[in-house]
């Protein structure tokens, strides 16, 4: 009670009141674009353009924009959802498994050139995607992998590898070694120790890395622009980017498509916030 009382008194001080007003003012400004986007998405565009989305008096609310976007004849969001999932799920699972194996080796074993390899891995994290796409496109075109989901999945898997190795290595470094040594004395081989002991204990780390990798692949745009040219293969980001016509812009349709596109990462973020932030901090602060 005493603590609560003193907290309350703190909040009533004039400077602290001012701070609260500023902080919430900024939060409101930051939220405004999303409110606007949402308002535009649930109202007929004609009404919005005449009266403004901020004008709620006598507003009509409708799901028309969502229905139109979901089944859009050239940029169907439904198909985009499907394609994005087909790309994002394997592009998460494959690198998480392979990178975790490598990260474990970096964390626990000593081998030749280890520190140089690890330095290389961290350096790769800084590279822009632009540095790989030209030769990759040419090679994949000759292999018939352009415009295919396996092709883009390979690209995402390889591209995500570096940061996941880095992240998981830091995670493994924090696991107690005694448990693995106990398993070693108990007769387990290195691979058995990895999948019977280390993997189950690393689930929080794996989940963090997966959550981040999945939302990044879901949100990815540049690789898709290069490797998925055929509109039927387009993922969701490509579809909403194309919804804006050159001359006539139907903001209602774009807004609804945008809400669809960000719903998945937002949902992942809200449901798995703890893991999302942990992964995010592992990606930045430790690095």
């Amino acid at each position: 009670m005493a603590v609560r009382g003193s907290r309350l008194r703190l909040y009533l001080r004039p400077d602290v009141v001012l701070i609260n007003v500023i902080a919430w003012g900024i939060a409101l400004v930051w939220l405004l674009p999303f409110i606007g986007l949402f308002m535009v998405s649930v109202r007929p565009y004609g009404e919005v353009i005449v009266r403004g989305w901020w004008n709620i008096a006598g507003a009509t609310f409708t799901m028309d924009n969502y229905i139109k976007a979901w089944g859009h004849e050239s940029y169907s969001i439904a198909q985009g959802y499907m394609n994005s999932l087909i790309v994002a799920l394997p592009s998460t699972v494959i690198p998480i498994i392979t990178a975790s194996l490598a990260a474990y080796a970096f964390s626990r074993f000593s081998f030749p050139l280890k520190s140089y390899l690890f330095l290389t891995i961290i350096l790769l994290m800084a590279l822009p995607q632009q540095i790989v796409v030209v030769p990759l496109f040419l090679a994949m075109r000759s292999l018939g992998l352009v415009n295919t989901f396996p092709g883009i999945i390979l690209v995402h898997s390889g591209w995500g590898m570096a940061w996941i190795i880095f992240f998981m290595k830091n995670f493994f470094d924090l696991l107690p070694r005694e448990v693995e040594e106990a398993a070693k004395v108990d007769g387990a081989s290195d691979f058995k120790i990895f999948y019977k002991i280390v993997l189950p204990l690393s689930l929080p780390g794996i989940l963090s890395a997966s959550v981040l990798q999945f939302t990044w692949v879901w949100s990815s745009f540049f690789f898709e622009l290069i490797f998925l040219v055929d509109p039927s293969k387009w993922v969701i980001t490509q579809r909403i980017a194309s919804m804006k016509g050159e001359y006539l812009v139907d903001w209602g349709l774009i807004a609804a498509g945008s809400v669809f596109a960000m719903a998945v990462p937002l949902l992942v973020y809200v449901l798995l916030q703890k893991y999302y932030i942990r992964g995010f901090m592992g990606w930045t602060v430790k690095g």
């Binding site: 005694e178 448990v179 106990a182 004395v185 387990a188």
Partner: peptide
């Protein structure tokens, strides 16, 4: 270690936290 047939008890016990007592002993 696996080829020596020795057993070890660790200072902090190093039990496998994700397994039941039965699975720990059976491991």
């Amino acid at each position: 270690p696996k080829d020596r047939n020795v057993a070890m008890v660790f200072q902090n016990y190093a039990l496998y936290p994700h397994m039941t007592v039965f699975d720990n002993i059976a491991f």
